[in-house]
């Protein structure tokens, strides 16, 4: 991938959980206003890599990160960097929608409040819900519990919650795997729209989804010690129509994995 528009770069990244090396020596750049999909068989380290991009692995005891993750010309693992600040700029959406047991409004306002961004909070909530393509469905019931929403709506609510703090990059870990086809399409279409303002990195097991939503694709595999490594990355059209590495070909055509 060309480096010139990279908004986030991983350099020679290895991650250990205790003695176990989960990923090894990955270097990869993420381009601004693009969707990059991370694909690969189960256990290849996609989610580990994703979680490194906003220091989510800090929350796992014994996790150790080597190498650099550079955002805004700074290694986010520099001891001087506050992980909470990193997560303001680089947000995450998880596999299962995880709204708080609060009202729809409070879910979106949550991040704003804990970060002291209480000015124009109603405008921010509306803007975020609109950006997450949820506003029209919830504008008359903002005080209702988020738990009354469907799974697909809950996931868009979680995206709105992430957008509210105005991050630059959004990390998504299998964001549609718990949704039905309609909910999945809504999320995918939202991802395309969000690239106008955001950069997205998505982990997905669904090959067709990666092909549909992403501009760039990175394929990971694991070696005999079960450490994940990067096999091939590039434009999604090239990866899915004419991959250069035969391991990529074998994986995406279902010959292993």
């Amino acid at each position: 991938m060309p480096n010139n528009e990279a908004v986030l770069s991983v350099r020679d990244l290895s991650v250990y959980y205790g003695e176990f090396r989960a990923i090894k020596n990955i270097s990869l750049s993420f381009q601004a206003n693009k969707v990059t999909a991370l694909i690969g068989p189960s256990g290849c380290g996609k989610s580990t890599l994703l979680r490194c991009l906003n220091r989510m692995n800090d929350l796992i005891p014994q996790a150790k990160v080597e190498g650099e993750v550079v955002y805004s010309q700074q290694d986010i693992y520099d001891p001087l960097v506050d992980p909470a600040q990193v997560r303001l700029h680089i947000g995450m959406v998880f596999q299962k929608p995880n709204p708080f047991p609060k009202s729809i409004f409070d879910n979106v306002a949550f991040g704003l409040k804990i970060n002291g961004l209480t000015e124009n909070i109603e405008d921010s909530v509306e803007k975020s819900l609109r950006s997450a393509a949820l506003w029209d469905e919830v504008k008359d019931r903002l005080d209702e519990s988020a738990m009354t929403l469907s799974g697909g709506q809950q996931q868009r609510l979680c995206i709105a919650r992430t957008l509210a703090v105005e991050p630059e990059i959004i990390l998504m870990d299998e964001p549609a795997s718990a949704l039905d086809p309609i909910g999945t399409l809504a999320i995918e279409s939202l991802m395309r729209d969000l690239t106008e303002r955001y950069t997205i990195v998505v982990v997905t097991h669904n090959m067709q989804q990666a092909a549909r939503v992403s501009d760039e694709t990175a394929f990971l595999m694991m070696d005999e010690d079960r450490a994940g490594y990067l096999v091939e990355s590039g434009k999604t059209d090239n990866i899915f129509q004419n991959p250069q590495d035969e391991r990529t070909e074998a994986y995406i055509t279902g010959r292993f994995g």
Partner: peptide, 9 residues
Amino acid sequence: QQPMATDLR
């Protein structure tokens, strides 16, 4: 089958 790569080509 939603073919990919060589299958698609």
